[in-house]
Design a protein around this nucleic acid. Structure first.
Lengths: 233, 233
DNA sequence: CGAAAGGTTGAGTGCTGTCAACGTCCGTGG
DNA sequence: CCACGGACGTTGACAGCACTCAACCTTTCG
């Protein structure tokens, strides 16, 4: 019995704009879906057939060049919105980085519902404006920052966003588990896997971070990190 | 007597969602403004005090690192929307690339008006979603493409967008005037001025473009151009 | 005519990519 | 329990593309 009322992201997703009655309607057009790590939900260039709210887990949004170079253009977490409403085609591929749960809607049904509920469109607009700000920040990183600046910026951003997403103030902001492997970090930062590895090694050697295992990062010196992220050596 | 009814972008800007009555109200809270080339309308990090529709001209949106490296994160033309509604601070600096005219609103007045007019918010949402798609496309370019691919992609994109903006089917799609100087092209593509110059020289030498003067570009071989933009040599 | 701004070209360096070897972790099966 | 294999990550050597620095050319404008 999956119902919106007991939904984990009920108060953080765009649905928080709806009252019980409206939620009931939305519930009927929506569908809970489990996605296992590595599985894709939609593909770049395909017809935009569905949109969804992320309930749990992390997913990446990516595009590729004709010859296969990939760029991750976004990483979404629980309560984030995915898909392209009001458009014909999906602008990017969406793939689960961890096992995930989403609440999906056919695009046509969602578009119709959204148009009839301005409060929901408003939430979606605010969210989209935030995403745009984030994307443009990332453009500065991709266009103008060095490898060391990129990695430091990435780790700080990750620490912040993971803390936000596990809103139950899980405690240690400085210790977190990356939902991405080295290749994927490279795809986010526009760098190669080897460069990522070297930069992480360098941060570890400098005593700025510690890496108990491949996926875990502990930030030991946040100030130094911020300094590197800002203007680099 | 500047009135919305005779506005050049009346049918293309987000205002096209409004009827005569609503337009009258909007007209009262809006203000026509001329901006001369090089002048800025708002600054990155400042409080978000105004938003605007571009009536005429081209403007750049840019961000910088602490040590002054700049990245242009967007270029807007007539009928485009600028500013950050529903947010506290301007995420980037907006500067006129050419002499321009805009129709500006205080953010608070616009926010209020927008919330009361779902059709307008809907237009704004669609526009923002398009901008987000464009920004993410650009992330692929910045993260993964070579200098020659970037310049070719940029010129094709420019030709397309300038044709769109001067909607009066001004004729020659393959001949256009760049609103950007070499430095600014570099700031869009995440490259230096010298690299831009060399790449343009190379395209000219290869007979793919011609450059009658510093600002004018004529695309002679669109196919070759698209090939370079796609996967490069 | 001269100066300044913008653009082009050249020489050399350096950062990041490429290619390759090796190490580590982990699950599987003998 | 240990041997094996594969996925993932690290490290090294080297190369190449784009950056830096510098000189020079072109256009514009006072």
């Amino acid at each position: 019995m999956s119902s919106c009322e007991q939904c984990l992201v009920r108060n953080r997703a765009i649905c928080s704009s709806l009252n019980a009655e409206e939620l009931e309607v939305l519930n009927r057009i929506g569908r809970r879906q489990k996605i296992s790590r590595g599985q894709s939900l939609m593909w770049e260039g395909d017809e935009s057939l569905l949109v969804a709210n992320v309930i749990e887990g992390a997913l990446k949004l990516s595009t590729s060049t004709a010859d296969g170079r990939e760029q991750i253009v976004g990483v979404v977490y629980s309560s984030d919105f995915i898909g392209r409403p009001f458009g014909q085609t999906s602008p990017h591929t969406v793939t689960a980085l961890t096992d995930a749960k989403v609440c999906s809607f056919t695009r046509s049904a969602f578009d119709g519902f959204a148009r009839a509920h301005p409060e929901l469109e408003h939430k979606l607009l605010k969210r989209t404006l935030d995403e745009l700000d984030r994307a443009r920040d990332w453009m500065l990183l991709l266009g103008r920052k060095s490898a060391s600046e990129r990695v430091a910026t990435f780790l700080l951003d990750m620490s912040r966003r993971l803390a936000q997403s596990s809103c139950a103030g899980a405690g240690d902001l400085d210790r977190f588990e990356l939902p991405l492997d080295r290749q994927q970090i490279g795809d986010v930062l526009g760098l190669t896997i080897e460069t990522i590895s070297r930069q992480i090694t360098q941060l570890r050697t400098a005593g700025i971070i510690s890496t108990p295992d491949r996926r875990t990062v502990i930030i030991l010196d946040r100030t130094a990190m911020a300094e590197i992220a800002g203007a680099s050596v």
